Computed example of a mutant assay.
Amino acid sequence: MMNTVDAIKNLSQINKMKEYLKTRSTRDYCLFLLGINTGIRINELIHLRVSDVMTADEKVRDFLDSAAYANPPVYFNRMVREAIQDCIHSEGLEHDDYLFKSKKTMSPISRQQAYRIISEAARYSGIEGAIGTTTLRKTFGYHAYQKGIAISLIQKRLQQSTPSETIQFIGLANERHSLPIILDVNL
């Protein structure tokens, strides 16, 4: 049985992790940002190639080029696009390279390496909950919900079967829903 991990719900802890990772490695910072801003599974995240995120004329795409994440599509916000650009330039990556290439080989980093990156940054940031690579997806889902994104869209992005599964997954099952639901079309 796998241990369950938590979403990072505290924004100051997220910011502390971002600061820590940015000083350590543009690749690791980019991995974290992409994970918490897109909800992509870690195995798919580490296997992204530069060509999935950048056009032939070297412009970072606004949306991920992926059939698996087409509905809804994965949007790269400005901060994510900048992190991708910095990662590609600082790591000297080519169009066919893995975005999260190992420092030692041409292969992508492993799930274990991704786990080490995330858990080390979490420890540094004083996060005591259960942290793992799935924390990135859970953090994305939790904060998307807190910003008013419909649970049905989050469910689709996280590729889960039911809204109740998604609510459980992102750690809302035992929380009082703090967002009032206002159905105002303001015609």
Rank of each mutant, 00 (worst) to 15 (best):
M1Y: 10
M2H: 10
M2N: 13
N3I: 14
V5M: 03
D6C: 08
L11A: 10
S12T: 15
N15F: 07
K16S: 10
M17E: 03
Y20Q: 08
L21F: 11
L21S: 06
K22D: 11
K22N: 14
D28E: 07
Y29K: 07
F32D: 03
F32S: 03
T38Q: 04
T38K: 05
G39C: 03
G39T: 01
L45D: 00
H47Q: 10
D57G: 04
K59S: 09
K59T: 13
V60Q: 06
A68T: 14
Y69N: 01
V74K: 08
V74Q: 07
N77D: 14
N77A: 09
N77K: 05
R81F: 03
E82H: 11
A83M: 09
H89R: 12
G92L: 06
G92Q: 12
L93I: 03
D96W: 04
K104R: 13
S107T: 12
S107C: 06
P108S: 09
Q113C: 12
A114I: 01
A114F: 00
E120R: 11
A130Y: 08
A130V: 06
G132V: 07
L136Q: 00
H143V: 03
G148W: 03
A150I: 06
I151S: 05
S152C: 11
R157F: 02
L158Q: 01
P163W: 06
P163N: 15
T166H: 08
I167S: 04
F169M: 00
I170G: 00
L172T: 02
L172R: 00
H177L: 15
S178Q: 12
D184F: 08
D184R: 15
L187K: 15
